[in-house]
Nucleic acid binder design. Structure first.
Lengths: 348, 348
DNA sequence: CTGAAAGCGCTTACAG
DNA sequence: CTGAAAGCGCTTACAG
């Protein structure tokens, strides 16, 4: 299965490998190689169906035109949508994507990081777990092109692409209150993840603004690992302690999904009984809960921003959609906070 | 950002690169290298945090320990679940995964194939579009390790991992009939995709068995591209032509999703009015249509089989879960048809 | 028991 | 205008 290489072409044309390389790299005129030769090379490469060996190219360049993406779970709809958005953006700068699923296991995440480094990927994109901060710090120290997203660690100086967690939560809960809800449950995940904290803060801020009491009995915090199992008990408790609960704010769509299961199993007419709000949603939410209000993550924009920042770090010539010519150089972090789009559906 | 290489270690230890390479490759005793030296090398590599440069390794070996996966759409729940399953299986043979989303565009699919070849991936996994058969034939001619899944092209001699399309459809529709449905609509996709044909055949087979007429008015075929837009008109037509329709068989979960939207928009009490059946489902189906019967694709098993067959072609020493020692060698196609699990939910 | 050396396919200073 | 040559980091016959 002999591949066509530069050598193949060079021998065919009785010419040096170097010349072929220059021409195929598009630096023909720069090197003042005769148009005739250039033509011959281009034609030959075309007709022989030459494809450069990326491995060799990457080896000489010391870095490959592949980017690594580590996701907590590739089968989550949000993360897979992000993956798609990133891949589409990378297309434009001729980079490929290597997607890994850490399954929210720190061990796996670390393994994937070192695997990606072994492959000399040009950059790494990561929605990190908390405990892996050591490895990430390492990446930062090496000034490895890196962009973190979705999750934020205040003491980790990196490039982030985030959403306005607190603000979106605030708006969502504010809306629920304005519509008349007074006993709003907040379902969230153990806040060792900072963004979950922010979402909860947004919830509390809205309550405070309307001079409503913050009732711990209305707050349900589920475990990060195995949250699915936690939801039923948590909801049981809330319904027991505050039977008059009249609305639910879900700090994440994955929590809402589990709650819907619970509601269904318990034959609760949740679409009538409760106002609902959720950070992000699944495509099918509209069917399950037609009136749920949602702060939609701007998936496509997140993907573009991530690639934009990464490209800058990788020194890829690339005209970003936003023509703000940043003065920032490497080692100066670029973090972006994108607003969610608020979708109000209970204005019946 | 100097990486630690074999040379670094060799110089540190005043020893040859070759020796370091042998030991780190685990062939120390085979090469009869003194235990003392081995120990020193291992320790040094460990302490210097050595990670082999996969690019260099792949370049010398002529092939990388990465596998390419081309999906029609990574944000589809079925495909992202498959991706996850494949990645988990590849882990065990120390292969990495490069996931690409063709977005069901033939041009993109072809681009991804050639990109993956440029990266000298060890093998390619693909749920192909029809038109790309040329490129795939090329891969087969080069005896490039290749496994196709989900979609089947009878005249394309390749390794396939498929489900029992006809049988599962038959069982599903047979069940609907046994429960009393007589006017069963079949919603499917233009059958230039063979597996869609098979699913329709299963539907017809069940009708025939029960001596029911096959009514073309009950069959809704939507376009492959932009099927979302087609569903409403198709359902409109069916309801117009056969108002007494009493059940729906969806040849794919993505069709069911769109139908649910339609039902909702038209305020139809579909859970009461119709029996439902679908090939595969989304996690949230249970909430939207608690009584839908489903032929579940065995995602994890599909992933394992794919990797199993691919590993064989890549000559990876690997003990497959099924200890059936196949006699097959390369160029002899191994195709596997896996049964779906029938989930009956309308036995109220 | 260990090392020198060729080679994988490319890029890129350097030389002419 | 074009080529010879070094080097990227590894593997692996070959030699001793």
């Amino acid at each position: 299965m002999g591949h066509i290489t530069l050598k193949t072409i060079a021998e065919r044309l009785n010419i040096s490998i170097a010349t072929v390389s220059w021409v195929l790299a598009g630096k023909g005129k720069e090197r003042k190689i005769s148009p005739a030769t250039q033509e011959r090379i281009l034609l030959c490469a075309e007709s022989m169906n030459y494809h450069p060996n990326m491995l060799a190219r990457a080896l000489t360049r010391g870095v490959s035109n592949t980017v690594g993406l580590i996701l907590p779970s590739i089968s989550d709809s949000f993360y897979s949508a992000i993956a798609k958005a990133i891949e589409l953006s990378l297309d434009k700068i001729d980079y490929s994507l290597m997607i890994c699923s850490s399954e929210s296991e720190t061990l796996r995440e670390n393994r994937m990081i070192s695997m990606l480094k072994s492959h000399r990927v040009g950059g790494i994109i990561l929605a990190p777990m908390e405990i892996s901060k050591v490895e990430i710090r390492q990446l930062i120290n090496e000034s490895y092109p890196l962009v973190l997203f979705d999750r934020f660690f205040p003491d980790l100086p990196a490039n982030y692409v985030l959403i306005d967690n607190e603000e979106s939560s605030y708006k969502l809960v504010d809306h629920l209150i304005r519509k008349g809800s007074r006993k709003i449950a907040c379902i969230t995940i153990n806040p060792h993840l900072h963004h979950m904290n922010l979402r909860r803060k947004g919830y509390e801020k809205a309550l405070k603004k309307h001079r409503l009491e913050i009732n711990p009995e209305l707050i349900g915090e589920v475990a990060f690992h195995g949250y699915e199992k936690d939801i039923p008990a948590t909801l049981d408790r809330i319904f027991h302690q505050v039977p008059e609960v009249d609305a639910f704010f879900f700090a994440s769509h994955i929590l809402a999904i589990e709650a819907f299961q619970y509601f269904r199993v318990h034959h609760m007419d949740y679409n009538r009984k409760f106002r609902l709000g959720s950070i992000h949603e699944e495509p099918l939410f509209q069917n399950i809960a037609p009136h749920i209000n949602v702060a939609m993550m701007p998936v496509a924009k997140i993907g573009r921003q991530i690639v934009d920042i990464l490209a800058e770090q990788m020194n890829v010539k690339y005209s970003p959609p936003n023509t703000t010519t940043l003065e920032t150089k490497e080692n100066i972090n670029r973090s972006v906070v994108l607003p969610c789009k608020l979708i109000i559906r209970d204005n019946n």
